[in-house]
């Protein structure tokens, strides 16, 4: 008893500390999600949130499922490995509502040149032209069919 009386100042500090720790644990328990740390130092629900983002590019196999005529034509030519949406843009909206969402035709004036305009940084084996000399402003698809670009 005498000891407790003499060490009273220490006991009070210890009590304040203990109260602080308890308060910390209560707050921590309230704000940290229950399954935080299940897979690592993060909130597992975040994976679901990120996965819920809508898809814009439907993917090659989806396009080919309906447009097999164009797919066949393309597969026979040099553009065989160019995916539909590489030129036609993201079409998931079209897949979701085929009747009302119609894809716009790509603008040939910029589309072809982006890949095939001559540039020293492009790989030497890649077919390139200086469009001004090559066609003199005539649209590429006057001579080349985009799906199978051979003349």
């Amino acid at each position: 008893m005498r000891l407790l009386r003499e060490a009273g100042h220490l006991v009070r500090v210890a009590l304040v500390l203990a109260a602080g720790v308890v308060l910390f644990l209560i707050i921590r328990n309230a704000v940290v999600p229950k399954d935080f740390g299940r897979y690592g130092h993060f909130r597992p629900e975040a994976l679901g949130v990120i996965r819920a983002h809508p898809v814009a590019f439907a993917g090659q196999s989806t396009c080919v499922a309906c447009h097999d005529d164009q797919a066949k034509e393309r597969a026979a030519g040099k553009h065989a490995h160019v995916a539909c949406e590489a030129c036609h843009g993201p079409q998931a909206a079209h897949v979701a509502d085929i009747a009302n969402v119609k894809p716009a035709l790509p603008d040939v004036a910029t589309l072809c040149a982006r890949c095939h305009e001559k540039n020293a940084a492009k790989p030497k084996s890649f077919p390139q032209v200086v469009t001004a000399e090559h066609s003199g402003g005539v649209a590429c698809n006057t001579c080349h069919k985009p799906h199978n670009p051979q003349i």
């Binding site: 994976l47 990120i50 090659q60 490995h81």
Partner: peptide, 23 residues
């Protein structure tokens, strides 16, 4: 970049890889 996590977790490739014309 999320490596298109919403796509690759459902069997699709990323948007950049889908659109790359030369592989």
């Amino acid at each position: 970049c999320t490596l298109c996590y919403h796509r690759i977790t459902q069997g699709l490739t990323t948007a950049c890889c889908e659109a790359c014309p030369t592989g």
